[in-house]
Design a protein around this nucleic acid. Structure first.
Length: 288
DNA sequence: ACTATGTCCTGCGAGC
DNA sequence: TGCTCGCAGGACATAG
C-alpha cells in the first residue's frame, strides 16, 4: 500500500499532485490507521545523506525500539509520536518526515523489491516495513523532542490574526501565502486556487488587500483545504486502484495548470505568470 | 526586519 | 529514434 502523490487526470488536463496540506493530512491519517501502535524493530538509512536533516546515527537511535503512538500532520510535516514500548520514562521523541515534492511513504511486506530512491526502511514488529522513497530528494527526515511549526495553521487561525500576517508586507500576496513562517502548509497549487476563489490577483502587494479581500481569502483558504481533505479522507478508506495503491480524489483545479484555458466562471483565458520563480495562474477578469 | 533570488534534485516532455 | 534542454517546486542559504 502506497501513500503518495500521484498522477491525476481531470476533464482537460493531467496534473502531477504535489503533497500540500490536504495531501499530507490524508497521508498522515492513512498511516495513523495502519501503523499506530506498531513498534519499530530496526532502521535502515540510505547512504545518501541529503534527505537527512538530523544525523543518521541520531535518527536510527531515536527510532529504534520505539512504539509509534500516533501519526499526525503539522503544516506540511508528518509527525510520528514515539514512545518507549514498556512505558518507561524515556523523554518524548518525534520523527518528522517532510515529503518535499516527490516523497512517499510505503507500508509493505519486506519481500517487496526495494524501489529506486528508497532512503529509509523501518522494520515493524507486525512484520511489515515502512519505507521512505523520494526520487528528487527534496524531502527531509529528522528527529526532535517536540516539533513546532513556525507558521500558523491555516485551518485554525482566526480572521484577525490572519489579517495581521499581511499588515505592512510589501511582497506579493502569493509569496506571502507560500511563506511557511506566516502560514504552515500552503503550497503553490492551493495558493493559486484560494486566490482565485477570493478574487484577488496573485501579484497584489499583501498590504494592499482590503479587509473584505482578506476576509474572502481567509474563507477561501479554509474552504479549499477543507474540501480537499474531505476528498482525500474519503479516498483513504474507499479508493484503492488496481495495484492496491491508494490515491487521491483531488479538487478540480479552477486555475492551476489551466493556462489559456477558459475560466470556469467567465470563460476568459487563464493567465500564467511567474512570481518569485513560481508559476502562478489567475483569471484576469475575475481577479482584481 | 524584510524581500528577492539562487540552489538543490530527478524525471519527463517538447522540440529537433 | 535519440538526443538536449528547460521546467516542475519546498525550503533554505545568501545577498541586498
Amino acid at each position: 500500500m502506497r501513500i503518495s502523490s500521484m498522477i491525476q487526470s481531470t476533464d482537460d488536463s493531467i496534473t502531477f499532485l504535489m503533497p500540500e496540506l490536504p495531501e499530507v493530512e490524508t497521508i498522515a491519517r492513512g498511516l495513523a490507521k495502519r501503523i499506530s501502535g506498531d513498534v519499530i524493530e530496526s532502521v535502515w538509512l540510505g547512504s545518501k545523506p541529503e534527505p537527512l536533516k538530523s544525523p543518521a546515527s541520531e535518527i536510527a537511535a531515536t527510532l529504534q525500539a520505539k512504539r509509534i503512538a500516533a501519526v499526525r500532520r503539522v503544516g506540511k510535516h508528518i509527525v510520528f509520536d514515539l514512545e518507549s514500548p514498556r512505558g518507561a520514562t524515556t523523554p518524548s521523541a518525534q520523527w518528522i518526515v517532510h515529503l518535499g515534492m516527490t516523497g512517499s511513504l510505503l507500508v509493505c511486506a519486506p519481500e517487496l523489491a526495494l524501489e529506486k530512491h528508497t532512503h529509509a526502511v523501518l522494520q515493524l514488529a507486525s512484520g511489515r516495513e515502512l519505507r521512505f522513497v523520494d526520487p528528487r530528494r527534496f524531502g527531509r527526515l529528522s528527529v526532535i523532542e517536540k516539533f513546532e511549526a513556525p507558521g500558523a495553521e491555516p485551518l485554525q487561525i482566526g480572521f484577525e490574526d490572519f489579517a495581521a500576517l499581511f499588515h505592512n508586507r510589501k511582497t506579493p500576496i502569493k509569496s506571502a501565502l507560500l511563506n511557511q513562517n506566516l502560514l504552515s502548509g500552503v503550497g503553490n497549487i492551493y495558493a493559486d486556487e484560494a486566490l482565485f476563489r477570493a478574487r484577488v490577483r496573485p501579484r497584489r502587494r499583501a498590504s494592499s488587500l482590503t479587509r473584505d479581500e482578506l476576509r474572502r481569502l481567509h474563507q477561501a483558504l479554509k474552504r479549499v483545504f477543507t474540501e480537499a481533505i474531505k476528498l482525500g479522507g474519503s479516498s483513504v478508506s474507499d479508493y484503492v486502484d488496481a495495484d492496491g495503491e491508494e490515491g487521491f480524489f483531488q479538487l478540480k483545479h479552477r486555475v492551476y495548470g489551466r493556462e489559456n484555458k477558459p475560466c470556469r466562471v467567465c470563460k476568459t483565458p487563464i493567465k500564467r505568470i511567474v512570481i518569485a520563480g513560481r508559476s502562478s495562474h489567475y483569471c484576469p477578469r475575475c481577479q482584481k
